[in-house]
Design a protein around this nucleic acid. Structure first.
Lengths: 246, 246
DNA sequence: CCCAATTTGTTCGTATGTATA
DNA sequence: TTATACATACGAACAAATTGG
């Protein structure tokens, strides 16, 4: 794993240096997801700065949802549980009614090579080995979404179909706990497309029905691409929800 | 205009109180968009707190893009210029090529009454007076988007078709400078829909073409709804772009 | 139930650096 | 050059929440 600390300008503020060191410790796995990192006082000793400087570094990491502070308890490495998936990375909500966890059906798994597009999205060379799989998601029993996911085989060494099929929690939880890869950022591009026969069938829709297509790149601590995902959502009774400025 | 300070728990931290007071001053128009607010030192005197407490309040308002700090110059009230519109509230980007300013054509203007849906979105009573207007947006000459916008007439007293037609800058700039209403937040719900004949014609598309529909509620300082907007986007060569976790 | 230790949260103050006008 | 304003960094004290005895 890449645990190097990206270069900073000579005159970078101290708290930015501290932040980089903390992120390096996270990326290296020194501090595990879900666990507490050392107390602010101990970090200030470790890095030779004042507590205020450590706090400012951690403030930024909390704002990015990479760390979570809890008064009286400590500061914890954000871990990918169902709640985080639902409230942070999953933007499909019922048009009316409360947000809910989707049920996932694992549909297909193949190994292959990256074409030009996927290579560019995942920062690979064309021809590099990838794994692909497809999930169908249901809300309240109704199929609403098909996910086609591509991973770089090299970054998920030893990944098996069985792991994907029988994972106990979310996909990002599996990446994090089984492969030490934490997704902390995503970039999504949305379009309206006509459903092809394949996906229409999986969603119980007529071919040609307008679907919301989401192309997501999920990135790790150093902004390195981790996963490429194309989702097709039936928006008859569901919507993609985005808030800006909160 | 509503310049009341929302209630806070008895034991609210000082910096939160300061933040509310600053927001009240903004909402009341005491500090105008684009202008500098008083220096931190002066604010600390005004509110009887330390400078650090004022900084913490302003930190939060900067994080929410309500204020903008510039070292050596001062702290400014965010104003709605074209750049802010483009980089913060406008999420439609070319599938390839750089982001650009859309050209706006004003197409239609009507006065009417709020139906149940609009009333709920704009926090009005059904039957309250509203103004509606339609814009077509082009990028590089090609029509890509139709906006249908609804405003509460009471909140935009004296608004004329001419103002909308001849506005020199963005719509949100007009709201801000002519009506003292600042949009600081939006909530958007996205769906894929089939183009109806009306909108298809405006976008040079066949009826039934899948379009991205965006239903946006724009809100002010106290989260009060200001504008309801339904956009239909042709995503043949453009996309809706969203970043999470940055 | 209370107490003590630990940890983060808030508030104050001060000094110095850096950018701007 | 000087004055102003924000940015960084340090330190100290106390508050509030949590945990374990």
């Amino acid at each position: 794993m890449d645990t190097t600390i990206p270069a900073l300008p000579q005159s970078a503020p101290l708290y930015k240096e501290v932040k980089r060191h903390v992120m390096a410790a996270l990326a290296s796995g020194e501090w595990k997801p879900g666990a507490a990192i050392p107390a602010e006082r101990r970090l200030s000793e470790r890095y030779g700065t004042s507590i205020g400087t450590v706090r400012k570094a951690i403030d930024e990491l909390c704002a990015e949802n990479i760390l979570i502070r809890q008064q009286g308890r400590g500061t914890f490495v954000a871990s990918h549980n169902r709640d985080r998936m639902l409230f942070y990375f999953f933007h499909v909500v019922p048009a009316d009614g409360p947000k809910a966890y989707p049920d996932v059906e694992f549909l297909a798994f193949t190994r292959g090579k990256a074409d030009r597009v996927v290579a560019e999205r995942l920062a690979l060379e064309p021809g590099d080995a990838v794994v692909r799989f497809r999930n169908r998601l249901r809300l309240a029993g109704t199929p609403i979404m098909v996910d086609d996911i591509t991973l770089a085989a090299a970054r998920f060494a030893g990944l098996t179909e069985r792991q994907l099929r029988t994972r106990p929690s979310t996909l990002y939880n599996l990446y994090q706990y089984s492969f030490g890869i934490s997704v902390v950022r995503t970039r999504e591009r949305l379009r309206a497309v006509a459903a092809d026969g394949d996906i229409a069938a999986l969603l119980d829709l007529a071919a040609g029905t307008p679907l919301l297509q989401i192309r997501r790149i999920a990135c790790g601590y150093h902004d390195e691409p981790v996963e490429y995902r194309v989702s097709h959502v039936s928006t008859a009774n569901h919507e993609y929800y985005a808030e800006i400025g909160t």
